[in-house]
């Protein structure tokens, strides 16, 4: 393992180094490093950065990449929890690096790639199997009946809209699926994220093919692999109640219909 290195602070958004030196503290990042082109096996390397308590873990990674070791590789884009690029394992749990603050992770932070997918390089994993699972549940509205002759929108009640509000929040970051022990044990398991996206259409009153998706998820690699462990719900950066959603899909399969009672949250999320 390489000796810890101290890195000059850069300020994530641009040149506020002086302020950071005054208020920041030293954080040791222990990072999983693996480039299959040159490394025989993964190693952990340590880097020391100066960070403010309110900095994001992503800001600390950026400090390393921008000023110390440009070869450190991870995905990132929006930096505020919306695009889903930077899901990774931070101190053993799946988080978005841009949605965890330094003050919440302690002085020593271990960062590793998501589990269950091939590592391409460092913190970057192959997302293709994940998107293949997503595509397998028909993640799009199906309704072949004619649209309203008025030329206007299909109507949907606030109550019906509410039934699938929670699962529309998914950003496909894969934090849930790669936290699931059932997925670790069986890579063919469709996984929580795909079920969330199936739920979003199964319970949409405008969609006509709920039963087809319920059949897909009634497969041996479908919802029944879920053992209600709740890792997915805890991992979700969008706070989707994933285990509840999977439960609703299970219930609909058992009933043979999406017309099940859906318990509404305390507040309604419709406009």
């Amino acid at each position: 393992m390489a000796a810890p290195k101290t890195i000059k602070p850069s300020a994530g958004g641009g040149g506020k180094a002086a302020a950071k030196l005054a208020t920041g503290k030293r954080i040791v990042l222990r990072l999983y490093r693996f480039n299959p082109d040159v490394d025989e096996k993964p190693v952990y390397r340590e880097y020391t950065v100066t960070a403010d308590p309110t900095d994001r873990v992503l800001d600390a990674l950026n400090q390393v990449k921008w000023y110390e070791d440009g070869s450190l590789t991870y995905r990132r884009s929006c930096a505020h929890g919306i695009c889903g690029s930077d899901a990774m394992r931070i101190n053993g749990v799946n988080r978005l690096a841009c949605k965890v603050l330094i003050r919440d992770v302690g002085d020593h932070v271990t960062i590793e790639p998501l589990m269950g997918f091939r590592v391409i390089k460092d913190l970057v994993v192959d997302m293709e199997p994940f998107f293949a699972q997503y595509r397998s549940v028909l993640p799009f509205l199906i309704n072949d009946s004619p649209v309203p002759s008025t030329g206007r929108e299909r109507l949907q009640s606030v109550h019906d809209r509410e039934k699938f509000d929670d699962t529309t929040k998914c950003i496909l970051c894969a934090a849930c699926t790669t936290s699931c022990p059932s997925f670790w044990a069986d890579e063919n398991f469709v996984g929580p994220a795909a079920i969330v996206n199936a739920h979003r259409f199964i319970f949409d009153s405008r969609d006509t093919n709920a039963n087809e998706r319920l059949d897909i998820l009634n497969d041996r690699e479908g919802v029944w692999r879920c053992r209600t462990i709740f890792n997915c719900t805890e991992a979700c950066p969008r706070e989707i109640r994933i285990t509840k959603a999977i439960g609703e899909v299970k219930k609909a399969i058992l009933k043979g219909s999406r017309d099940i009672h859906i318990r509404q949250p305390a507040t309604s999320h419709a406009g």
Partner: peptide, 11 residues
Amino acid sequence: GLPFSRTPDGK
């Protein structure tokens, strides 16, 4: 399929 928020009369 865009899940717009809705008015009380479903628009």
